[in-house]
Design a protein around this nucleic acid. Structure first.
Lengths: 369, 369
DNA sequence: GCATTTGGGCAACACTCCTGACTAAACTGG
DNA sequence: CCAGTTTAGTCAGGAGTGTTGCCCAAATGC
């Protein structure tokens, strides 16, 4: 809680941190530019840059400023700073990216998986991306399309949640090919973070992100961060009690069963069948849409009551569909304590959120070394 | 986000902060004791103590150590550091306390209010406590038994929440008699903080605290802090949909209406009538208890789904009643994803929580000056 | 009364950052 | 092409930290 023990070493490390952060943010800088950016004096910056260069963290890129006056030397991060691995695991396949501390995607690889041979192929695909990454992979961030145990990083089975990927342990798969911290979280949580950083919820400290796809999920953002709860299972709304088609109380996932919108032999939602009702214009379709909207409104009402968001974001294959948004907005407006409802805007949201976090983690590791 | 600009002044202020925190925690200390406690060298501590004494924050108490070796001088906080005001506002009255930076209660005053003459009496009572406080009041923390608007600190009216205290603005009342920051929050939130600091939820980072009294409230603690939501209205569960006595979906507060447990002409719960059902042993009482428990379980289930707590704490006049706890525990165990349910243990919980925060605020103000 | 023990002060040192002046190296304009 | 201008980077001196090691002061215990 209390700040670190005061010492001259602390002061020096603080200076180095300022220098590194400035370079990470701007890509390349001269010492004078760093000084004016950080407000620290030129001689101090020169000292710090010398230290960091000797430590192998910064390099003189050889580039020079042009324009009036003496040319300055640009410094940037060394290649040795390494990179971070970003992974997405869904029932449809595995995607791996290597990113550097500037957030640039260095390489990308994808593998389509089937249920049986999945695990080994996934490990191989990710190991291959890791091997290609210059400077080595120093940390990894994983987005998984299933509930994630917060402590272990394993995917967990919950009642009434369709289990899509299998009893998988991303941490053990990744620790074969990389060392360093591995963070696993649910894809919906990453999507919410992405919307907060540069999407429809930019800068909003309190909102909920409801993902409507084959599975049902919800991310809760409170005081500026996704709140995962004790086990990491906050927002697993499939089992939440809401209003069914006939007005009776039903768990959310059962509403889809009652409407005949589940895949055979699974608790997964039949998105294609559902989509038809969103595009059609007959009375039957309108009835289904209203029933869906009222069920979703039950979820939103519970969220408003318990976490008081300023905004609700709808995402996922059919959540961001205009027809769905329209009918939910209409229904929700009739509820007490209604809040604005908007559609998600970030493409590949779960990847964007995970990537941003991977960059932050990597930067922190570089600064801490 | 990034740390403060490195400078020698920062270093000095960090040292002073360490010294002040050590003295605040232990009451009185010699310079040598401070040095060994903080790990900072003796000459540095001596310098800092001299600075802080000259600034009027520390004083030589005149006391001396006894035992072997040379006697050391004890230093402690000066009286000029001021105190903090802790207030509780309920429909039954106003309570004011002055506390010092050590957390000692210096004075206390209480006023019973009626609806009409309340506001002026409340202001006078609090002003009196403030006037008696040595060194002046530098900040205030208020616990209010109604929903609190997070930005303005005003009490707000919500649908189906009994409005007990009136459209009150604690900030404007208090700013007459004190200067400095005033923090207002709901009593249930303060109670939850108290349970986390030294009660049945000690050290638990994720739990919910459900208050069952005349009103219904819930505090959501996530990642170690009470999450108030955008407007400060998270946990206002009166309107949350749950299971009614006959199995139909009902807003929680309507369950009490259906059971005849509301006060006449109010949405407040008739606690005395309810208490009889908790103490009685007949079939009718058992039926009511079960109906109440199932309604509460609906709330707990929604909380588990949305915020994934590790623990549920029951508090309030009838929430912590053994019979209530027993029947809720029993009913909740049959739900999917059940979690432990325990009774609150801290006496005067809303005051304890507010007091602890007031001490923290006061300490921060002293350190910052 | 003397040895022991502990609090506190002093001086020297190492280190960090800053200011102000200086040098170095590029461009600009005649 | 050369002097003037402009900008990058360095140097020297100084102020202010925190630390170590040693000393003195003052209390207890025998």
């Amino acid at each position: 809680m209390s700040s670190a023990k005061p010492s001259l070493e602390l002061l020096r490390s603080l200076t180095d941190e300022h220098v590194l952060r400035a370079v990470m943010e701007r890509g390349r800088l001269t010492r004078t530019e760093i000084a004016s950016l950080t407000g620290i004096s030129k001689p101090t910056i020169s000292d710090s840059v010398r230290r960091l260069t000797e430590a192998g963290l910064l390099v003189d890129t050889g580039e020079r400023t042009t324009g009036r006056g003496r040319a300055g030397s640009y410094y940037s991060l060394s290649e040795d700073c390494g990179s971070a691995l970003v992974c997405s695991i869904t029932p449809h396949g595995v995607l791996g990216e290597a990113v550097d501390a500037f957030g640039r995607v260095l390489s990308r690889s994808h593998a389509v998986l089937d249920r049986a041979a999945g695990r080994e192929r996934a490990a191989d695909t990710l190991a291959e991306v890791a091997a290609r990454a210059p400077g080595g992979v120093r940390c990894a961030v994983v987005s998984a399309a299933d509930p994630v145990d917060r402590r272990t990083g394993r995917l967990v089975q919950l009642p009434d949640v369709p289990f899509l990927v299998g009893d998988l342990d991303p941490v053990s798969i990744l620790s074969r090919s990389i060392e360093g911290p591995i963070l696993v979280d649910n894809d919906v949580n990453w999507a919410a973070r992405a919307e907060r950083q540069g999407g429809c919820a930019e800068g909003v400290d309190d909102f909920v992100y409801v993902h409507l796809g084959e599975g049902l999920g919800c991310a809760v953002v409170n005081d500026g961060d996704v709140r995962r709860g004790h086990g990491g299972l906050s927002g697993e709304i499939a089992h939440l009690w809401t209003e069914g088609p006939d007005g009776a109380a039903l768990p959310l996932t059962e509403v889809f069963a009652a409407l005949g919108l589940r895949r055979d032999g699974s608790t997964a939602i039949d998105v294609e069948a559902l989509q038809k009702f969103l595009d059609a214009d007959d009375a039957e379709a309108a009835r289904v849409r209203t029933a869906l909207a009222r069920a979703i409104c039950g979820v939103l009402s519970a969220a408003v009551t318990l976490v008081d968001p300023r905004l609700a974001v709808l995402g996922g294959p059919w959540g961001a569909h205009p027809a769905m948004l329209a009918v939910i907005t209409e229904q929700f407006a009739t509820c007490a304590r209604s809040i604005p409802v908007v559609a998600a805007t970030v493409p590949e949201p779960e990847l964007a959120g995970a990537r941003a976090h991977a960059v932050e983690d990597l930067r922190a590791l570089i600064i801490g070394s």
